[in-house]
Amino acid sequence: MAEIQAETRGRLASLADSDLWHSFKGSPVTIASALVALLLVLGALLAPVVAPHNPFDLASLDIMAANLPPVWAEGGDPAYPLGTDDQGRDVLSAILYGARISLLVGFASVLLSILIGVSLGLVSGYVGGRLDAVIMRVADVQLSFPAILIALLIDGAARGLLPRDLHESLALYVLVFAIGFSGWVQYARTVRGATMVESRKEYVQAAQIIGIGPATILRRHILPNVMGPVLVIATIHLAIAIITEATLSFLGVGVPPTSPSLGTLIRFGNEYLFSGQWWISIFPGVVLVLLVLSVNLLGDWLRDALNPRLR
């Protein structure tokens, strides 16, 4: 796997020298969204360092500082730039820590989708025949159901199967599995098509003739040549995965309340919307939209830049 990554990275590096970098430089929207995404990812990664408070440290919570509005509103406190919730938790810090969970779940489930989808797509496209027919039928059926419904079901089933305390500790993994499993079809379809094209080319035939096994051919020869479109799907899928995670958490079936993501924060804040504390839910919402929008824009750009037909 490491070799393959090195190879794709090598391809990326050579791309970056040429067209990709130029089209990046020429598009202000793309640069802006890359900056926003970078800022959010850095903020989330460095949350323990940059966050003004630790929302999980109960000792540091000050009940006297509860329900403070943002700093620019009347009664705001500069120590809490985006205000506080009903327990005196700093909204900005909660967002930084929450974005961490959202991104973690998003990236992990996209990786899982890629793992399942690319492997099934490779096998399906290379082996063909009945196996291919079965895999593609299953993909068709799954594609006709919205991903969020499948994720909800997997989550619901896991809730019933696992004892309550075990479920609490495994909730993050269950969530990643639910979102990851609901998104593999697109990868499988794309990779299958590309694999069918690649496996008829001479270099694959040559490899077959000198007696290299199918597993090695798939991994070393075909995989690097079908990863381009996967990268594009993955970017757009990341945005979808983040939205799905937020939605499930908002519905109360996502991450456990002990590690709140952006969706959980919005869920908590939603209860205070009617009493006028809008900042508890709206700021995490704004960050979520910024994150998804910037990733979406980057994905759009990547798709156009990597697609030779559109040039």
Binding site: A239, V289, N296
Partner: peptide, 16 residues
């Protein structure tokens, strides 16, 4: 594009 990036539940909350 903004509409695609706005999660459904957030649209609801904003409207509320």
């Amino acid at each position: 594009l903004v509409g695609v990036s706005l999660p459904t539940f957030l649209i609801g909350i904003l409207l509320i």
